[in-house]
Design a protein around this nucleic acid. Structure first.
Lengths: 268, 268
DNA sequence: CGATATTTTGAGATGAGTCAATAGCTGTGG
DNA sequence: CCACAGCTATTGACTCATCTCAAAATATCG
């Protein structure tokens, strides 16, 4: 359904944010706040994009930011040797393209993973509004800052950790992002393949598969990727935090070693 | 030297940017542009800070951004198990604390590695100026965007690569950052220990030491950390890009093995 | 000139990548 | 409705790069 009604009208009035289609968007506000009203003047929402379509490609001139209103988008880069590396996943409420503001071109590809509704924010039009509407400026700054912080956290989590820990970090991260959007933090519907998740986490696809199995055997989750239910998120979180202190007692126990922790209850 | 002259005056007029003490600062401009003049009203430069002093700690309330005018600052976090993980290094011209804007507290520690001159930008005072002076706002957005981009690039570089590649990436990155500040891209004076560099790159200190030796044996660099001269930055860059060029000539099994798989020992 | 921190070097264990082959899905078209 | 193709996931075997532990050597600092 094409929602366009004119040059910029674009969006119907709905209780949820017309800019992002969901609640936790940077630009969201429950009421008709100034920044949303302002922004709505320039955001354009096109028809849904389907899996495999690109919002933009690396190298193409930077023109707009994008809000994900529905669906899933991945950003990725292709290395010299032709491998694709996933840089991040974007869910409803996320802004895509923030890393391009500082330059003249996009630095990554942005590719739809799961049928997505996307809002286009022409940056040239956004910029003057930022000065006029301080609240809008503040929102953008916050969004960017938070992305930097998230980036730091992710790097910390991924660097120098075991595959198991990275995987746990990935699951927890996804769970929390879903939760922040009002979705279930335990019943994950993942739009990405195991290979893509692995690429994001720096793991070989085979390793991801093995980890799914291991975690399943531990009773920590059920399903296998696509549909994934986190049964003991406390345990997973504990692994992610590397809090696997071996319960004192007979150390060297085979079973404990297999578990890698011997955790069971929710984490502290 | 205390450069304070009053509540906010703070800085002498010098050809180089009084805000950052060097050229490539986001807020720098060669002439007396509006944004610098504006910013100068609120930036406070204190006396130099020495190694080990902290600009801020993780958890303390966010109040200001910092510009590094001289010296080196590292940002780091301490994991639950007490290990310190280096998140980044900041050199003259860099802004520190951008990841805290989105929250109410700092998320990392910021610690002086090498006697540093630091400018304090109270965020509450900066914010209104951003709307008044669009150019200033633009600079800040660019700085943040670039940081996100750099973060992405670093993650790409570090994730799923060999220790050798990570190390090379680290060296190249440092070299380029120095070069961007008008310093020699080959004669590196590193303020961080091998352990810190390793922490940043996700490598064990021992591994860093071994890599220094390996690279030295290759004739790619000289020195050992602290003072480090890059002799063949092309080769290092090639390793960083995973493009290790085959030494033309004997394309025998040795060479191929070295190219395709791990290192052997000898080389060009 | 001691005391502490950093760096070097060695030896050994192992986690995770790679290769390879199988099994399971998903969508398409006959 | 079934067969097929292509993709995704699973599983096993093997290898090796890197971590860990341990100890010596060197540098740095007061």
């Amino acid at each position: 359904m094409d929602t366009r009604q004119g040059r910029d009208a674009v969006v119907e009035f709905r209780p949820d944010c017309p800019l992002c289609g969901s609640s936790p968007c940077v630009f969201h506000c429950r009421d008709e706040c100034t920044e949303a009203r302002t922004l709505r003047r320039i955001v354009e929402v096109g028809r849904p994009m389907v899996r495999g379509q690109y919002l933009y490609h690396a190298g193409s001139p930077f023109a707009a930011l994008y809000t994900v209103r529905a669906g899933t988008v991945k950003t990725c880069a292709v290395t010299e040797d032709g491998e694709e590396r996933v840089i991040g996943f974007s869910f409803p409420g996320d802004i895509v393209g923030l890393d391009a503001i500082g330059g003249s071109t996009y630095l990554t590809d942005a590719c739809v993973l799961e049928t997505a509704s996307v809002g286009v924010i022409p940056f040239a039009r956004l910029q003057p509004l930022l000065s006029e509407v301080p609240a809008l400026q503040h929102r953008l700054l916050q969004a960017m800052s938070r992305q930097i912080a998230a980036e730091h956290e992710m790097r910390l989590a991924l660097l120098k950790r075991t595959a198991e820990e990275r995987f746990a970090v990935g699951l927890v991260s996804l769970s929390e992002r879903f939760a922040g959007r009002g979705l279930s933090p335990t019943a994950l519907r993942l739009a990405m393949s195991q290979a893509e998740l692995g690429s994001y986490l720096g793991l070989a696809p085979e390793t991801v598969s093995r980890l799914f199995r291991r975690f399943r055997e531990q009773g920590w989750l059920d399903g296998t990727g696509r549909e994934c239910e986190l049964l003991d998120i406390g345990a997973i979180r504990a692994v992610a935090r590397r809090q696997r202190r071996v319960p004192s007692g007979s150390s060297g126990d085979e079973a404990l070693r297999a578990v890698g922790a011997g955790r069971s209850g929710g984490g502290s």
